[in-house]
Write a protein that binds this DNA or RNA. Structure first.
Length: 674
DNA sequence: CCGCCTCGAGTTCT
DNA sequence: CTCGAGGCGG
């Protein structure tokens, strides 16, 4: 990026950030997520670090967010309400400590830390006179906030009268929050009434406290947690931040129950990691941990720079949403010849890992998103794992973005690309296909699929490709004729790895009919349908003769309709395919006969496996269920009998609960098995 | 013919 | 996990 481009980007970012801020703080628009805002702000900051000449003191990023609304009475804070500097990882936390140590010099030996959970709500200030709650205000811009005393009085956890002995005058800082449960209920209600939903607990808390009618505010059932004392007229000697917490507790304020003094950064990180585990099940929304220098004397020495104190840092957990720029859209060719667009972007940290690409599925999806190369996009991780482009920030466009075009020719073999007719229908497929049966990409993907079905784990994509390039194999059947010598002679392959590979292949020559049919890669015949076929016919020979003669027998099988029927019969009437099967047999592949599905105690039951089981792998669990006559399906619906939830279960658990499907713990599942 | 379920296929990172 | 498409019942 050159200087002009950087400057243009900075301008765009500034205006979009300003727009989001206004939507967020002034209009309380619930659909704006602060993560997108944060992500853009981070990019702007980095750009300004690289190009300091474009710094602008009056620009939005140098002002504290939160312009007060006109509707509420404005109040001036006696001491400014600060914001915090963020750190995102261990390294940044260590940098923070280094800066502190430098400033403290020889006093740094007294340094220890205080950790507390950072609630994601609305920061408020509460004033008590003679032990009575007299005024509460929002943070606003840090200097001037809004008087929301009436609304705050509806929060049960804010004491209206302090426990004795209390100081003449006290100003408490804390966070007004909404529990996740309350938010869920509120959103459910809003859905029914057709109102807009709140994106997170923070927006909900802020929105609720901004209700002009305190009755509405009261219905929202907010909570409060205190974290600091700003003014205190008593002569009580508070020397540490941790003592403030204790004192707040004694006066009747709820404080974070996890808070702890940490001797060093290692302990701080321990706290951060411990809470990260608790966080998903914690009743309130949180976005990190606040780390403070515990000694108030040291805090004074360190002081405040700009709007944030040097003695505090917010350790932020990785955001679930982030923004990034699409550098390119590549086209992948799959086993079936389908062309799949793949967005390539700047490596970006999202939900704990760095992501550099995401599938776009097909052209329709690209059009729906209106995605162009060069666009800034919002990404998240579906189910916390798979990166996904959720939105394009079209306002950040410069006009230089390029539309994505599906190539007319296959990017690998160069042959024509086209949409396919959908069986029994006039429509065409959404996807484009490379129709060349000899396409190198298709063959490679097929080899990968084949070894996966045979469970030959030693042969990954890289090795397969190498074997193919070196001429060791031309088709999948050649794999079973590989010898130790062939492999050893290749560069970068040792004797040991050659032995392992050959042994593994030999081991996997016996295969069930179902897995074998799946390995053949027949159109529309995946793992499930392959098993249905295997269960019905029992042997490969019976299936082949039916495919070549009495196809009505295939048609009669449950879950097999016209499309699958046609593809199966076409496959087994093709001479090349039959030759390939013969070659596999000749090379030692033995297809095991399949027993007809036995009725067992799981007959008619559908299982879903989610999360990690400790006693067995999912693969084994699946086999056990099948052996008892049950089925393992991949998506939850109301027809699902049981969801078996292991450790760290994903979204399937949530859907199960929503649909009222019975959920089993691993223990309950094991009991059911035996 | 439509709407619900499933299945198939492609996909990411540690 | 997600999207498209096949199977099937209403």
């Amino acid at each position: 990026m050159n200087e002009t481009e950087a400057f243009n980007r900075i301008k765009k970012l500034r205006s979009e950030i300003a727009r989001l801020r206004k939507a967020y703080h002034v209009e309380n628009a619930p659909n704006v997520t602060d993560e997108v805002y944060d992500s853009l702000t981070r990019e702007l900051k980095e750009l300004l670090k690289k190009y300091p000449k474009f710094e602008d003191k009056n620009a939005g990023e140098n002002r504290v967010a939160g312009k007060p609304l006109d509707k509420f009475v404005k109040v001036k804070h006696q001491t400014r309400m600060l914001s915090l500097n963020d750190v995102f990882n261990e390294e940044e936390l260590a940098d923070w400590e280094k800066r502190i140590n430098k400033l403290l010099g020889n006093q740094s030996s007294r340094l220890n830390y205080f950790c507390e959970v950072k609630f994601d709500g609305l920061a408020v200030s509460l004033i008590y006179e003679k032990g009575k709650f007299v005024r509460g205000a929002t943070r606003g811009d840090g200097f001037i906030g809004e008087d929301i005393t009436q609304n705050l009085k509806t929060i049960n956890s804010i004491p209206l009268v302090l426990n004795f002995p209390y100081p003449e005058y006290l100003e408490v800082r804390g966070e007004a929050v909404m529990s996740k449960k309350t938010l869920e209920k509120l959103n459910l209600l809003n859905t029914k009434e057709g109102k807009i939903l709140f994106a997170n607990t923070r927006n909900a808390a802020a929105g609720s406290l901004r209700q002009l009618d305190p009755k509405l505010s009261a219905e929202r059932k907010l909570d409060f947690f205190a974290y600091d004392i700003a003014e205190n007229s008593s002569d009580k000697d508070l020397l540490r931040h941790s003592e403030k917490h204790k004192y707040l507790k004694s006066l009747g304020f709820p404080v974070d129950a996890h808070d702890a003094v940490c001797k060093n950064l290692k302990e701080v990180l321990g706290f951060v990691k411990k809470f990260e585990k608790i966080r998903p099940n914690f009743p309130y929304g949180t976005d990190g941990v606040v780390v403070s220098v515990d000694d108030l004397g040291l805090q004074d020495i360190l002081g405040v720079v700009g709007k944030a104190p040097r003695y505090m840092a917010a350790f932020k957990y990785p955001a679930e949403k982030a923004t990034t720029v699409v550098k390119d859209v590549k086209i992948n060719v799959g086993r079936t010849g389908v062309l799949t667009p793949l967005a390539i972007f700047e490596p970006t940290l999202v939900a704990g890992s760095t992501v550099s690409k995401a599938t776009l599925h097909n052209m329709d999806q690209i059009e729906r998103l209106d995605l162009r190369i060069g666009d800034t996009v919002v990404i998240e991780k579906a189910g916390d794992v798979i990166p996904k482009v959720v939105e394009v920030l079209t306002r950040l466009r410069t006009g230089k973005e390029k539309k994505v075009k599906m190539p007319e020719d296959c990017p690998v073999c160069g042959s024509r690309v086209e949409k396919q007719k959908i069986a029994e229908k006039k429509e065409e497929s959404v996807a484009y296909y490379c129709m060349n049966p000899k396409c190198a990409a298709k063959n490679e993907r097929y080899l990968e699929h084949f070894v996966a079905a045979f469970e030959i784990y030693e042969l990954g994509p890289k090795i397969l490709r190498r074997f193919k390039d070196e001429g060791l194999i031309t088709d999948a059947a050649d794999i079973f004729a590989l010898e130790k010598n062939d492999i050893e002679n290749l560069e970068r392959f040792g004797e040991k790895s050659a032995e392992n590979i050959v042994a593994e292949i030999k081991n996997k020559k016996h295969i069930s009919l179902g897995k074998f049919l799946w390995a053949l890669g027949i159109l529309h015949v995946g793992e499930e349908t392959a098993r249905d076929l295997a269960m019905h016919f029992g042997t490969l020979e019976k299936l082949i003769s039916a495919a070549q003669g009495n196809i009505s027998e295939i048609d009669s099988i449950e879950n097999i309709g016209p499309a699958v029927l046609k593809s199966v019969s076409t496959f087994f009437n093709d001479k090349n395919n039959l030759k390939f099967i013969e070659k596999l047999k000749k090379n030692g592949v033995i297809v095991e006969k399949t027993e007809k599905r036995k009725a067992g105690k799981f007959t008619g039951l559908n299982f879903i496996l989610t999360g990690t089981l400790s006693a067995m792998s999912r693969e084994i669990a699946k086999e056990k269920i099948l052996a008892l006559g049950g089925k393992v399906v991949s998506s939850v619906s109301k027809n699902t009998s049981y969801v078996v939830a292991g450790e760290e279960s994903g979204s399937k658990l949530t859907t199960a609960q929503k649909l009222g499907v019975k959920v089993l713990t691993e223990k309950e599942f094991l009991n059911l098995l035996s």
